[in-house]
Design a protein around this nucleic acid. Sequence first.
DNA 1: TTGCGATGTATCGAGCTGATACATCGACTC
DNA 2: GAGTCGATGTATCAGCTCGATACATCGCAA
Lengths: 212, 212
Amino acid sequence: MSRRSGVLEFAVLGLLREAPMHGYELRKRLNTSLGVFRAFSYGSLYPCLKALVQQGWLAEESGRASDDPRATPLTNRRAKIVYRLTAEGKERFEELLAQTGPDAWEDEHFGVRFAFFGQTSRDVRMRVLEGRRSRLEERLAKMRASMARTREKLDAYTLELQRHGMESVEREVRWLNELIESEREGQGQREQRGPSGAHERAGPDPSDDSTN
Amino acid sequence: MSRRSGVLEFAVLGLLREAPMHGYELRKRLNTSLGVFRAFSYGSLYPCLKALVQQGWLAEESGRASDDPRATPLTNRRAKIVYRLTAEGKERFEELLAQTGPDAWEDEHFGVRFAFFGQTSRDVRMRVLEGRRSRLEERLAKMRASMARTREKLDAYTLELQRHGMESVEREVRWLNELIESEREGQGQREQRGPSGAHERAGPDPSDDSTN
DNA sequence: TTGCGATGTATCGAGCTGATACATCGACTC
DNA sequence: GAGTCGATGTATCAGCTCGATACATCGCAA
């Protein structure tokens, strides 16, 4: 339950806060909603769920189809194990939400933190966004220094790769700037639940309205 | 030596092709030159080096500072172990370079492959670039479908995260398009060693000319 | 009724990371 | 010249993650 699985813990608690769920669905949500940046496997998820139950933050609501007390998840006809957030788990999540330490803006954590921004205060959001931005600016500085140092020695393709990498980071900084600006504008007004139209762009192609 | 370490193997062979090096320097190069996308730790590198020596692709040129035959890396005053590519290793690298299978355009491999584009033929470059592009377009299609399916159910921040993620992928596709176009333009002309000015942008801030 | 893909829980080997240990070197300070 | 500090350099390990896989049921369609 260290660095990486801390993210998983956070995401699981956050998702279960909205509604009880079983492992399979939890994993699907993780890898679609939040999963553009992160992917988790069953090999991580199931042990994590067990650990969270152990901690008392989750409770199992075994949806047994059979009354047979001998039934186990393997022998039982259909053994969904539904997980529900306990009061302690809710507290734990609030606690994690309020944390704005450096962990919150590292690559591994930031995406998931952002996905749950709607459940926290603007103070916290601002701190995380600004922390992330300064983290990326540090990285940019290093990349620039490194490129200045090595630019002559490098292959054209290697250079192009570095250029593209740097542009990606620069782009993310611009994105953060817009978000921060958007949070600032919201100040004093009603407590709003999202970035205020920093991007008013068109949605995905409406011809693709598959409900599949 | 499977999926992931295959990347490390490739990168090590490629770097040593230019010049013999010892582990420490190898790792520095890995995490600056190619390292915008990937990072490798000693825990991966040293075992990999040993395995490559085992395979006969690398040879150790122990730069012993002492003549004492009892000297080991630990007791010796300064035990650099310089690795050199053998003829077999060179062959192996050519073989890997020529591979254009699906592996070559997955997230883990593509960056490193690209960094060594200068050492391969345009045919191979085209296949890898186009493979990568279609891979990303698949992903885009899935993301669009997923967004169309869930857009109403989602929090504004989650949506914004997905939007940003999708834009990142779209941006990479545009980059690939430019590169492919650039390779096509080079067709028939001299075998050129890099992307032909798809990006003529200014370099990093020239005020930062630290030689450090 | 047979086959297939989605749903669902669970485990394992292989591999990677961050931390750490140990040791030397050059440069700097006091 | 003694002490400190950061860079250089090799090496290992606990802990964690992933991809693959096993097993079982369900719904559906040919």
